[in-house]
Simulated scan of single mutants.
Amino acid sequence: MNLHEQQLQMASYVRDPLHNPPPADIEARRLRIYRELFYNSIEGLLAAGFPVMRATLGELPWHARVRDFYATYRSQTPLFTEVGGAFIDYLHNADLDAPWQLELAHYEWIEAQLFRADDAAFTEPDTADLLEGEPRLSCLARVLAYRWPVDQIGPGYQPSAPPAAPTLLLVYRDQHLQVRFARLTPMAYQLLAGLSGSGRQRLQALGDEQVQAQGLALLKDLHSQQLIIAVDYCAGALA
């Protein structure tokens, strides 16, 4: 057996010792150290990125899920910061532990991405008026829609069926480096994610003057928090 074959055998065993034989020339104690070292590194990264999922699933289901990911998924990135994204990709094709698991994972991954985002996002200037220009969402904010109430799921609440209305959220990182979320009304979601055009055009598409006034108040509030900026019309879209 050449060196490459030895490395493959070792890697296969460390990934999935239940279905792959150990190398014959390494003592069991050392192999156990390697197995635990590599697994604990991946499990620790995922536990830090998906704490709500870990607590909600419980110890045994959580570790079974991580071990299956570790054994079967072939990541295309060497970056530790991208392991969470690889885990979500894996969940898309996995037999889920709960029907809300994928959406909860995505929500927690967004939180992690915002926490690591570049502070320079707060320095991006306006280039147009809020009404005449086109509102653009800061890279420190996301407008999200889920079937499941991902902001409420936890060890004490695990719904078996999605609610009638979707969960609409604005998730953002404030200037104190805290990731926060706010529930959005359908009107607010439509204004921020469902319409195109200038601020004025979006407000006019919402409805009557009362609804437009509520929308304008929301735009001004988010603008004051630097969660949206106004750019020259057609220079960029809210995304």
Rank of each mutant, 00 (worst) to 15 (best):
L79R: 10
H92K: 13
L60T: 15
H92D: 13
G84Q: 00
G85W: 00
V83W: 10
Y73C: 09
R65F: 03
F69L: 12
Y73K: 03
E108K: 01
Q76I: 03
F87S: 07
S75F: 00
A64K: 12
G85R: 00
P61D: 12
L102T: 04
P78Y: 07
P61M: 10
T77Q: 02
G84S: 01
L60K: 09
G84P: 07
P78H: 06
Q101H: 00
H106K: 00
E103M: 06
H92W: 00
A105H: 08
H63V: 04
Y90L: 03
E108A: 07
D89S: 14
Y107A: 04
L102S: 03
G84M: 05
V83Y: 06
T77S: 01
A105E: 07
A86G: 14
Y70I: 11
G84C: 01
G84A: 00
A105L: 04
T72M: 12
P61G: 04
H63Y: 12
A105V: 03
Q76D: 09
Y73Q: 01
E103W: 03
E108P: 02
H63T: 09
Y107W: 01
Q101L: 07
F69C: 06
A94T: 09
P99D: 06
D89M: 12
E82Q: 08
F87E: 05
E108F: 07
W62Q: 13
V83D: 12
Y107H: 01
N93E: 06
W62P: 15
L96D: 02
V66I: 12
A64M: 13
L96M: 02
P99Y: 10
H92E: 12
L91F: 13
Y107Q: 02
D68F: 00
H63K: 09
Y70D: 14
A86S: 15
P78T: 06
A71V: 10
R67L: 15
F87W: 06
D95W: 12
I88Y: 04
Y90W: 09
Q76K: 04
F87M: 06
N93P: 09
A64I: 11
G84D: 01
T72L: 14
F80T: 01
Y90T: 01
A94V: 10
Y73A: 06
P61N: 12
R74Q: 14
F87D: 03
D68A: 12
P99I: 08
G84W: 03
H106C: 03
Y90H: 11
E82S: 12
P78N: 06
V66C: 05
